[in-house]
Design a protein around this nucleic acid. Structure first.
Lengths: 189, 189
DNA sequence: TCTATTTGCCTATAGGTATTAGGCAGATGC
DNA sequence: GCATCTGCCTAATACCTATAGGCAAATAGA
């Protein structure tokens, strides 16, 4: 009975790797146990439940994403900042599809409020400082940007844009151009 | 041994109802069997697998959505058409959250090509006839609209906009205004 | 109407996942 | 060096998916 040195931390990190390799929906307590060459039941000393594991991966992903976003935004403003943050999401999803999928997990309100999710909203709002929007319009714009980032990345990852011209990168650039123009010329009600 | 009269058709339709009531991820062959007061194994005469059931629900949802879209677009053009199709997605997701979630299921290429999914792309393209866009820009715009519709609806359903002002309906209206303006003034590369 | 065939739903079975309870043996503290 | 703690184990329960083979109800043919 060799002790492998399991930790909640290590398990969640390994779970994130498993998610990226096999897909988030293949993340199971059993699969994770196999990865450590340990019996499934052993993980329950460190994890409350399967849901707990998934939530942990989601929180990790949200944090990594927020860190990358903060780094990308530093020293940038306006369209530059817009494109930088947008690319953080898209690139992260391509590098870490499983983690990105985890980040979409619906969290219960308390967990969400304590997560890095709030930093994401703040970062998007920070971008809008480079544009001239009134307060309620800022919220509308935050929601628009969130929708486009999430929507585009999720459709792209689902293969929606794979087999047709023009290629996805071209569209992505043009969509960021369009969003920039929209924010500069935000229509009155 | 009373025969209940199971059919693939009936099973998929009941599965869609189950999805709306309990959530798409609670749709299982076992749960569906309980609903018909029948043993789980009995469903395998009509369904190849659990995946088969889920795919069936997805195809049903895509078709219902496409039908609603076609009806909504009839006789409309420009911003009117844009708002009509957008509302079809949003309303459908609210009325049938389970089916809507099913429609996001990733289908294998052949299945997708034979699905109502292609009608969705056609409808979005049809909207763009009311705007003045060159061919490649039309594709970019189709992808933008798809991203916003899907992204917004999915964030809204995840509760992302629930507990903050202004309310979601207001934002939705303003986003449609912004999209209309963007399409009318699509920026050159 | 009676018989023969089809077929719908059943039982039995095997294997996968989640989760809890209780046990033994390394690791740790005095 | 001994006592305690704690990490991983075995055992057990309860689902879920899926396949194989059986019996009886429905259907077709005479």
């Amino acid at each position: 009975m060799v002790r492998v040195g399991l930790t909640t931390e290590r398990l969640i990190r390994a779970g994130a790797e498993l998610a990226d390799e096999a897909g988030f929906d293949h993340v199971t307590v059993a699969a994770l146990a196999r990865r450590f060459d340990v019996k499934t039941a052993s993980l329950y000393s460190h994890l409350k439940s399967s849901q707990d594991l998934k939530t942990g991966i989601a929180l990790l992903a949200l944090e990594e994403l927020a860190d990358r976003g903060a780094a990308a935004l530093a020293g940038r403003a306006g369209k530059d900042a817009l494109a930088a943050l947008a690319n953080v999401y898209r690139d992260y999803a391509r590098e870490h599809p499983g983690r990105y999928a985890a980040a979409q997990l619906r969290l219960d309100p308390e967990t969400a409020a304590a997560s890095a999710g709030v930093r994401h909203a703040q970062m998007t709002r920070a971008i809008l400082r480079g544009y001239d929007l009134t307060e309620p319009d800022q919220t509308h714009a935050v929601r628009l940007l969130g929708s486009v980032f999430h929507g585009y990345v999720s459709l792209e990852m689902g293969g929606g844009f794979s087999h047709s011209a023009p290629d996805s990168q071209e569209t992505w650039t043009r969509i960021l151009d369009a969003l920039d123009a929209t924010l500069r010329n935000w229509p009155a009600p």
